[in-house]
Design a protein around this nucleic acid. Structure first.
Length: 648
RNA sequence: GCUGCCGUAGCUCAGUGGUAGAGCACUCCCUUGGUAAGGGAGAGGUCGUGAGUUCAAUCCUCACCGGCAGCACCA
C-alpha cells in the first residue's frame, strides 16, 4: 500500500498509509487525542475525521479547545439536527439549505404554514432529544445519478436541484445522522452527542427566497445561534440585549431627538435636541472640508427630467426616484421633474458654467446635498435607511494624474474625521473593474493603481474585491467598527469616467485643447441621518461633550437658589456651552435621575451652600462622585471641553 | 417589493362581540428636599383608516396605511 507523509503543526512528520483518516491519525498519536479529536485541517481545509487523506499533506487535529473549528462543527451539525427535528415533527416539510453564519446557522424549509414561536420551542426540544440519542454521523460518497434518483424518490425537489448544481469534478457526499441523511460537504462530529445541548437557541423565523432570488418560491427560514458552552451563549444573549438598549430609534424617542410619522415614511422630523447634534456635526464637517480645500455649493432639489435623462439616471434609477408634475391647471406647460436622488449631475452643471482651465483643477465641489430616494417599504429602518437624507457629498474634478494625490488627501481627511467622531478603527475595500464597464483598459489600470497607491500612503492592509467596482470606475469603500464590534460602511471614493462624458464636462489643457476631466465621487459620513444613527448607537446615547445636545443642566436644590441658577446658566451660555436651567419644584434626586436618563453629560447642582460660596457641584454622567468647583473655573473648563475637536 | 407578526392615552402595555384600563409622563395643590422616582388630586383615547358580517364591532372578515423582523433591494 502506498505511503504518504503527514506534517504536523510542530513540524514533525510521519508516514501513514494512503487513505488514512484523520481519526486514525489522531488515535495513533494518543488514545486521549483520539477521543478528544473533533475534526482536522488538511492543507488548511477543514474536514471531518472520517475524511480519507490520499496524499502528502500538512495536518492539524482539532479538539473542542480550538475555537473556530469547534464552532463551525457545532453550528454545522446543529443545522442538520434542526432539519432532522423539523422533519421528524412534520414529515412533509421539504429541506433546502442550512449554512453556518456568524454566531450560528439558519436552515430554509419549504412548508405551507410558517413556523410559529411555539414551533421553535418544540423544535428545540426535539433537537435536544436527537442530540441525546448520540447517533453516529457517517458519510458516504455517492454518484450523481444515485443522489438525484434518491432525492426524487424522497420527493425533495430542492435537493435534486442542489445536486444538479454541484460541479462535475466535485464529490457528492451524503451524511447520515442515524437514519436521517442530508447532502453536505461536511465537516461533522462523529456523533450527535458531541453537540452542546445547552449552548444553542433558535432565535427567529423569517421568509427567505430560494437561492436568494425574489422571483423564486419563498421559504421559511429558522435562525439559530450556538456556542461552545452555555456561558458563551449567555454572553451573546446579553450582547443582544445591550444592542437593543442602544437602538437609536428607542434612544431617539427617549432623548427627544427625532420622530417619524405615517404621513412621511422614511423622512425624519428632527426635534431641537436631535437637530442640535446634527448641526454640531454639520458645522464641524463644513470647517474640515473648507480646511481641506473644498468649495461648498448648493444645488436644486427639483430638476427637470431632461437632466436625469442626460445623466442616465432616468434609465437606470427611475424606480427609486420621486417624480413630480406641476399642477396642470396652473402651469402653462407641463414639465416632469424629479427630486434629486443624487447630487452629481447638478455638480457637473456647476462645473460646466464658464470655461474651466487645467489651472482650476483639482476642483473640489462639496454639498450637504439633500436627496430623496424611494426605498422599498421593507428596507426602511430608523435613521439607518431613510427616503429623505443629506449626504456629505463632494465631487472632485481632476485629471487622471491627480487621482492618486486626491485619493490620498481624501483618506487622510476621512481618517481625521473618523478619529474625531470616535471611530479609531476602519477597514478599506478596493473594488476593481467589473466585466461590464466603460472606459479603456489603460484608464482602469491607471485609476486602480492610483487608488491602491493612495491607500498605501496611510496603511498597508486593505481588501480587494475583484469585479465589484461600478461600471463607470473603480471605488474604495470605508467600513468603520463601532463600540460593540459592528461594522458600518460609510465612506466611499469612486472614480468616474462616464458622467463627465455624458454631461460633456471639459477643461482647457496646457496645450490649449479641450480635455475630459475625471470626476471623483466621495463621501465620508455617507448620510448625516445614518451617521447620526451610528453615532447614537456607538455611544449608547452618551455622546461626547462637543456633540451632546444639552451639555449641561443647572439644577436647583432649593428655590432660593433660582437666581444664582439663572446666573450660572447664562454664564455657561455666554461661554459657548449648551446649558439649561432646571428650577422645577422637584427634589434633586428626581432631577439627577431624569437628566441622567436623558444622557446629559454634566449636571451642576446648586443649593444654599453654592449660592453663598459662588461655587457649583459637578456630577458627570455615569459617575456618582461629585466635585465642587468655583463658578468661573468650572465655566471656563466646560467651555474648553465644549470646543469641537478641530478647533482645539 | 415578498413572508410573518404588530397597530388601544405622549411612552410601555393589559383588556372585552354590548363604544375602555394600569404604570410612567402631563396639569394643579402640598412639600424647599443635597445627587437615579416625596405625597395628593385632575385632565387625557373616534381603540391606525375604510368597507363588510352582526340587533350591536376596538374585538370577527377583507382591503389599505404604518411599524417590527428577516429576505430581496441599496445604478
Amino acid at each position: 500500500m502506498a505511503k504518504i507523509t503527514l506534517t504536523f503543526p510542530d513540524g514533525n512528520t510521519r508516514a501513514f498509509p494512503a487513505g488514512v483518516t484523520a481519526a486514525e491519525v489522531a488515535q495513533s498519536i494518543s488514545t486521549s487525542l483520539g477521543k478528544k479529536a473533533i475534526s482536522a485541517s488538511v492543507d488548511g481545509r477543514h474536514h471531518d475525521l472520517q475524511w480519507p487523506i490520499e496524499a502528502d499533506a500538512a495536518i492539524a487535529i482539532h479538539t473542542m479547545a480550538d475555537d473556530a473549528p469547534a464552532l463551525e462543527l457545532i453550528r454545522h451539525d446543529l443545522a442538520h439536527v434542526m432539519a432532522r427535528a423539523v422533519q421528524e415533527i412534520w414529515p412533509d416539510v421539504k429541506v433546502t439549505i442550512g449554512p453556518v453564519i456568524e454566531n450560528g446557522w439558519y436552515y430554509d424549509f419549504d412548508r405551507k404554514e410558517p413556523f410559529t414561536p411555539d414551533d421553535l420551542g418544540a423544535i428545540e426540544k426535539k433537537m435536544r432529544e436527537i442530540i441525546n440519542r448520540r447517533d453516529p454521523v457517517t458519510t458516504e460518497v455517492w454518484d450523481r445519478d444515485r443522489a438525484i434518483r434518491y432525492y426524487e424518490a424522497q420527493n425533495e425537489p430542492y435537493k435534486v436541484e442542489l445536486v444538479q448544481a454541484i460541479p462535475e469534478d466535485q464529490q457528492i457526499r451524503m451524511y447520515w445522522h442515524g437514519h436521517w441523511q442530508d447532502l453536505c460537504r461536511g465537516p461533522h462530529f462523529q456523533h450527535t452527542g458531541q453537540l452542546p445541548a445547552d449552548a444553542f437557541k433558535l432565535m427567529k423565523v423569517a421568509g427567505a427566497y430560494w437561492r436568494g432570488d425574489s422571483n423564486r418560491p419563498q421559504l421559511q427560514r429558522i435562525y439559530g445561534v450556538a456556542f461552545r458552552n452555555r456561558d458563551d451563549l449567555k454572553a451573546y444573549l446579553t450582547f443582544l440585549e445591550e444592542a437593543e438598549k442602544r437602538d437609536h430609534r428607542r434612544l431617539g424617542r427617549e432623548m427627544e431627538l427625532f420622530h417619524f410619522q405615517e404621513e412621511a415614511p422614511g423622512m425624519v422630523f428632527w426635534h431641537p435636541n436631535g437637530w442640535t447634534i446634527y448641526r454640531a456635526l454639520e458645522d464641524y464637517m463644513r470647517r474640515r472640508l473648507t480646511a481641506a480645500g473644498y468649495k461648498e455649493i448648493k444645488t436644486p432639489q427639483v430638476v427637470d427630467r431632461k437632466l436625469w435623462e442626460a445623466s442616465g439616471h432616468w434609465d437606470k434609477y427611475r424606480e427609486n426616484m420621486y417624480i413630480t408634475e406641476i399642477d396642470e391647471e396652473h402651469a402653462n406647460e407641463k414639465r416632469v421633474n424629479a427630486l434629486k436622488p443624487m447630487n452629481c449631475p447638478c455638480h457637473v452643471q456647476v462645473f460646466n458654467q464658464g470655461i474651466k482651465s487645467y489651472r482650476d483643477l483639482p476642483l473640489r465641489l462639496a454639498e450637504f446635498g439633500s436627496c430623496h430616494r424611494y426605498e422599498a417599504h421593507g428596507a426602511l429602518h430608523g435613521l439607518m435607511r431613510v427616503r429623505g437624507f443629506t449626504q456629505d457629498d463632494a465631487h472632485i474634478f481632476c485629471t487622471e494624474d491627480q487621482i492618486a494625490d486626491e485619493c490620498a488627501r481624501f483618506i487622510g481627511l476621512l481618517s481625521t474625521i473618523y478619529r474625531d467622531t470616535g471611530f479609531a478603527k476602519f477597514d478599506i475595500k478596493l473594488s476593481t473593474r467589473p466585466d461590464v464597464r466603460i472606459g479603456t483598459d489603460e484608464q482602469w489600470d491607471k485609476a486602480e493603481a492610483a487608488l491602491e497607491k493612495a491607500i498605501l500612503t496611510v496603511r498597508n492592509d486593505y481588501v480587494v474585491d475583484p469585479g465589484e467596482g461600478a461600471f463607470y470606475g473603480p471605488k474604495l469603500d470605508f467600513k468603520l467598527t463601532d463600540a460593540i464590534g459592528r461594522e458600518w460602511q460609510c465612506g466611499t471614493f469612486q472614480a468616474d469616467f462616464q458622467l463627465p462624458e455624458r454631461l460633456d464636462a471639459t477643461y482647457v489643457g496646457q496645450d490649449g485643447a479641450k480635455h475630459r476631466p475625471v470626476m471623483l465621487h466621495r463621501a465620508i459620513l455617507g448620510s448625516f441621518e445614518r451617521f447620526l444613527g451610528i453615532l447614537i448607537e456607538n455611544y449608547a446615547g452618551k455622546l461626547p461633550f462637543w456633540l451632546a445636545p444639552r451639555q449641561v443642566v443647572v439644577a436647583s436644590i432649593v428655590s432660593d437658589a433660582d437666581a444664582y441658577v439663572a446666573e450660572v446658566t447664562a454664564a455657561l451660555t455666554a461661554a459657548g456651552v449648551r446649558a439649561e436651567a432646571d428650577t422645577r419644584n422637584e427634589k434633586i434626586n428626581y432631577k439627577v435621575r431624569e437628566h441622567s436618563l436623558g444622557k446629559v453629560p454634566v449636571i451642576l447642582a446648586i443649593g444654599q451652600r453654592e449660592v453663598e460660596e459662588r461655587t457649583v457641584t459637578i456630577r458627570r454622567l455615569g459617575e456618582t462622585r461629585t466635585a465642587v468647583g468655583a463658578l468661573d473655573q468650572v465655566v471656563s473648563d466646560l467651555a474648553a471641553e465644549a470646543v469641537p475637536p478641530d478647533l482645539r
